[in-house]
């Protein structure tokens, strides 16, 4: 068995990071390196034997202080495919529930020789906090309303795979931008790769401050649909604290939902994306979510390849490229 996928990238000379904390930190070259590495790893998952030994002997801890199914499973599978050993810890099974601090919990994990800690946390900045204090690699799997870097990487990977490039495309991100870590990471990734970005949603959930980054903000979804190459619909949450931000899910759908009528106004080859979990009938019509233009499940598949690439670059690259 070969140590690396057949189209392995050149040794990661330009990747010097121990951690992946935010997309905002990355250069366009680093982003492209992750995408190219992920493309190589995607072929691994299509093989009969889906494993490579890149992280053999390494230990990865999925430390999910906030619940997650899809991201945790994706990281877990990515680690398995790289031959790492994986342990999953959630907030309720960790000593955080006994009052231990995040720092102490993480130092204990490091004392167990964890090579990689994948952290999902409700507090913005928590992954950076750990990355600055631990020798282990820290991968941000979503921190509060800050960033969700691997989601953005899989989003731009999917766009590049389907449309051949990212630069020059017009991408609309629709929904709750204010509280969305996916939106922030997507905005940074898309802008760094040369796309045009328009944010769409209720004025309470789309901060104008984002215009300072060079994105457009609109509250009129119908005006932009014919122009865009990609629509990325964010999950709308109305169950928790959002009742001050818009009156009802029905009104949200009436103004911002991707209904069949609206989908018909998209360019024929426009992509429809969603980071999941999908609220069918709220941000997207159920049939549209399952239509050929929807790449929602491609995103999930690509997430695995992207996370393999991130783990490989942060924790395995030095090891394997020294051969």
């Amino acid at each position: 068995m070969t140590a690396k996928p057949k189209t392995a990238p050149a040794p990661a000379a330009t990747w010097t990071r121990k951690d992946l904390v935010s997309i905002r930190d990355l250069s366009p070259e680093e982003l492209t390196l992750v995408l190219d590495t992920a493309a190589a790893f995607k072929q691994v998952s299509a093989r009969e034997i889906k494993k490579v030994p890149s992280l053999r002997g390494k230990t990865l801890i999925n430390f999910f202080v906030e619940p997650s199914t899809r991201t945790r499973t994706s990281f877990e599978l990515a680690a398995f495919r790289l031959s790492a050993d994986v342990v999953n810890i959630s907030a309720s099974t960790s000593s955080l529930s006994k009052g231990e601090t995040l720092k102490d919990t993480a130092r204990n994990l490091q004392a167990l020789h964890a090579d990689v800690i994948v952290l999902r946390h409700s507090s913005a900045g928590a992954p950076l906090f750990l990355a600055e204090r631990l020798e282990s690699s820290v991968i941000n799997a979503g921190d509060g309303a800050h960033e969700h870097p691997t989601q953005a990487l899989l989003d731009v990977f999917t766009i590049r795979e389907r449309l051949g490039h990212v630069a020059g495309l017009h991408v609309a991100i629709i929904g709750d931008i204010l509280f969305s870590r996916v939106a922030r990471s997507d905005i940074f990734a898309l802008l760094k790769l040369g796309a045009n970005v328009t944010l769409v949603g209720p004025s309470t959930l789309v901060p104008r401050e984002f215009e300072k980054l060079g994105v457009r903000v609109t509250h009129d979804i119908d005006s932009i649909l014919p122009e865009v190459d990609v629509v990325n619909l964010l999950r709308i949450q109305h169950e928790r604290q959002r009742k001050e931000y818009f009156p009802s899910l029905g009104e949200y759908t009436a103004f911002f939902g991707l209904t069949r009528e609206r989908a018909a106004r998209l360019k024929p080859d426009a992509l429809i994306m969603h980071p999941g979990p999908v609220n069918r009938g709220v941000e997207i019509d159920s049939e549209i979510a399952d239509s050929p233009r929807s790449v929602i499940l491609d995103q999930v598949t690509n997430g695995l390849a992207v996370r393999m690439a991130v783990l490989y670059l942060c924790a395995g690259a030095n090891h394997t490229s020294s051969n």
Binding site: D143, A145, H146, R181, E209
Partner: peptide, 11 residues
Amino acid sequence: EGYWSTILGLP
């Protein structure tokens, strides 16, 4: 509340 809270995702 301003540009940096928006970027940093802090309330």
